[in-house]
Design a protein around this nucleic acid. Structure first.
Ligand SMILES: NC(=O)c1ccc[n+]([C@@H]2O[C@H](COP(=O)([O-])OP(=O)(O)OC[C@H]3O[C@@H](n4cnc5c(N)ncnc54)[C@H](O)[C@@H]3O)[C@@H](O)[C@H]2O)c1
Ligand SMILES: NC(=O)c1ccc[n+]([C@@H]2O[C@H](COP(=O)([O-])OP(=O)(O)OC[C@H]3O[C@@H](n4cnc5c(N)ncnc54)[C@H](O)[C@@H]3O)[C@@H](O)[C@H]2O)c1
Lengths: 217, 217
DNA sequence: CGCCTCCTGTGATTGACTTCACAGTGAAAT
DNA sequence: ATTTCACTGTGAAGTCAATCACAGGAGGCG
């Protein structure tokens, strides 16, 4: 529902989401000096079954040593290569509001291979200024900046009005994927991907679970 | 993986997530004066198949009029009741950093039935101050404020250090559900639910998809 | 050297969600 | 009144992911 294209891939998208989790835990282990880890160890640490972890790793041909387990360092680089985060890549941001500024000042993205290289807004009070060292461009400059900074991924944190237009323009200018925080349904341009983060919906899901649990009592 | 309990429920969690999307679109339609909507209309608007929409609505006994479709106003209140957002409920927030302040100043939560009633931090520069009208308490006051404001849901936007401790204390004080923005694996206390929002992981997923698509070319 | 133990990788199975397809139905039209 | 039409609700089929369970293998140890 959230995504458009889903053609024959070697690795399932569920697996890809778990790879992020594995990698983060593996990096923790690496910092602690751990060199090898068994499937059941890592699995219990991140809350999956050992069988699922093995299957996830096997889906791209893993190198688990039967006696010693998986090599932590090698697994980190392998997962990074699969995710495409082995090199720092530029991403764009539309909407320098409260949320957009929080994203701009967050250091965690750089650690994971993402650099917010450019921001866009329409508010004259923001255009031209620097936010956490990054220039805020007017939305009119979307196309040239996308080309110049080679943006393939764009984060959407503006207002709902005109969102589809921004998506279509960005897609035409070369953006292939969108991370959308704006609670509005969108049409995914052909060849593109849109991933939604709907915080209110997550709260509603939790509210449902709490309510359901109370009723079961 | 993200959730702990998943006992025999009448409505599937996938359905619940879609209910949020349906409700948002239904509210838009309601504002436009639409009174009835057919499954295929609403389905194409939110990007699901008509069959899935009908099944989702049927899973809690829906009232679709065969000739006119579903009654928009009635469906909104029904979904709200299912999600437990028909009455405004208090939620807590831990961590008044960049992200926490963005969440505090966001008006959208109130519209969906959630009121961030209290915030917690450990930074002396923040404790005691007001943020968007809400008081920031010291983490030491977690338990009494949870009881006083009747918090069942808590949003986590602090640093990774000590996160599990906060969760355990909040759970012991009566919190049943957590929305966690902090990229650290957690242990879910019995009877509780934790929903993660991992923004970096979403970017990694998009990075994977873009990379995969380029390779397919 | 041979046995034993424990782990990985994977075929097979189960379970869950989605999609298909159609019977039943109510309203409008004639 | 009857026919027609399009839509809903749902059994059945299909699809996909998670889990089970075990064959095979690598090292440790006597
Ligand atoms: N802040 C949150 O906690 C939160 C939570 C969930 C969802 N969201 C969503 O994220 C989006 C941003 O939230 P926010 O709190 O930062 O809002 P905000 O009002 O603080 O900021 C919105 C920014 O987008 C800019 N903008 C508006 N239209 C634009 C356009 N067409 N092109 C470029 N920029 C444009 C505005 O000038 C403003 O700077 C909203 O759609 C909101 O619904 C925010
Ligand atoms: N800002 C983002 O865009 C973003 C994106 C993804 C994830 N996150 C995660 O969200 C969390 C908050 O991000 P941020 O950018 O607001 O960070 P931040 O450093 O701006 O704010 C963290 C806040 O939490 C407080 N804090 C630290 N330890 C605490 C504790 N034990 N109890 C209560 N409060 C405590 C700090 O005093 C500070 O006010 C981080 O864990 C971060 O990894 C943030």
């Amino acid at each position: 529902m959230a995504l458009s294209r889903n053609e024959d891939q070697r690795v399932s998208l569920h697996t890809v989401e778990r790879l992020s989790v594995y990698r983060r835990k593996l990096e923790e282990l690496s910092h602690e000096g751990v060199e090898f880890v068994h499937s059941h160890q890592l699995a219990t640490m991140v809350g999956v079954t050992p069988a699922q972890l093995r299957r996830d790793l096997a889906s791209f041909g893993s190198y688990g040593n039967i006696a010693r387990g998986y090599e932590v360092a090698k697994m980190i680089t392998t997962i990074s290569r699969i995710l495409g985060t082995d090199k720092l890549q530029n991403v764009g941001l539309v909407g320098v509001g409260d949320l957009g500024r929080a994203l701009l000042s967050y250091r965690g993205f750089e650690e994971r291979g993402f650099h917010i290289a450019a921001a866009f807004d329409i508010d004259p009070a923001k255009v031209g200024r620097l936010f956490a060292g990054r220039r805020c461009y007017h939305l009119d400059e979307l196309e040239p900046v996308i080309a110049q900074s080679n943006l393939r991924i764009m984060v959407l944190a503006s207002r709902p009005e005109g969102l589809q237009d921004i998506i279509d323009r960005a897609a035409a200018a070369g953006v292939r994927a969108f991370l959308n925080f704006v609670p509005r349904t969108t049409v995914t341009p052909p060849g593109c991907f849109i991933e939604r983060i709907d915080i209110s919906a997550k709260l509603e899901k939790l509210s449902f679970l709490v309510k359901q649990q109370e009723q079961c009592t």
